[in-house]
Amino acid sequence: MVIGLHHVQITIPKGEEEKGKHFYCQVLGLKEIEKPDSLKGRGGFWLQVGNKEVHVGTEDGFDRLTTKAHIAYQVENIEQWKKALAEQHIEIFDSVPIPHFERFEFRDPFGNRVEMIQEI
């Protein structure tokens, strides 16, 4: 029986951890958490998002712009996020509407698709 969601993993190119930490920790304001010693040699970093984790691994040879795979962050003030990301020169894309939610998408600096979603 599946009882919940523990973490999701996205990837960035090998050697881009500092750029990734800047985007995810400084621009999005997520908190970095320490990886277990047994995994530190594999590259990447981990983030805390509420009571869940986002694991940012490293992977080369993959075109992130060709996939619909994405992560959706639930937010409280979606208009504030649109403005903050636009100020960082991040292109905002409208999402297909779904009932009871306002949402938009963008690509992180590595091409990963990201969604911001707010319940209305």
Rank of each mutant, 00 (worst) to 15 (best):
H89N: 15
L28T: 11
E59N: 07
R64F: 03
K35C: 01
Y24R: 02
N112H: 07
R42T: 13
Y73T: 03
E32W: 00
T11E: 09
E119P: 08
A72N: 08
Q74T: 12
I120T: 15
A84N: 14
H55M: 13
I33K: 05
H70C: 01
A72R: 03
L28S: 10
K68C: 00
L85K: 14
G4E: 09
L47P: 10
H89A: 15
K83V: 07
F45K: 02
L47I: 04
V2D: 09
K31E: 13
Q88Y: 07
T66H: 02
D108E: 12
P97S: 13
D94T: 12
F104K: 11
I71D: 11
I117H: 09
D63N: 15
M1W: 05
H100M: 14
A84K: 14
V8T: 12
K52A: 14
R107A: 06
K31Y: 00
Q88F: 07
I3D: 11
E115W: 06
E32I: 03
H55L: 14
G61E: 10
L47E: 11
V2W: 10
P99L: 11
W81M: 01
N112M: 01
F101W: 13
E59D: 06
H89E: 15
I33H: 06
D37M: 01
Q9V: 06
D37T: 05
M1F: 02
M116W: 03
F23P: 07
N77F: 08
V114P: 05
E17F: 01
E105C: 08
Y24M: 05
I10H: 02
E87P: 04
G29N: 00
T66I: 00
G29M: 02
G50I: 07
I117N: 13
M116T: 09
P36C: 02
K31I: 08
V96N: 08
G111T: 00
V75G: 07
Q48H: 01
V8Q: 13
C25P: 02
G20F: 01
K31R: 04
E16H: 10
A86Q: 15
F62E: 12
G50E: 02
R113A: 00
E59R: 08
Q9S: 12
E102V: 13
P109D: 09
V96K: 09
R113S: 01
L47S: 10
H6P: 01
F104R: 11
G15A: 05
D94E: 15
D94W: 07
S38Q: 02
Q26C: 06
E79Q: 11
G111D: 07
E76N: 12
K14G: 06
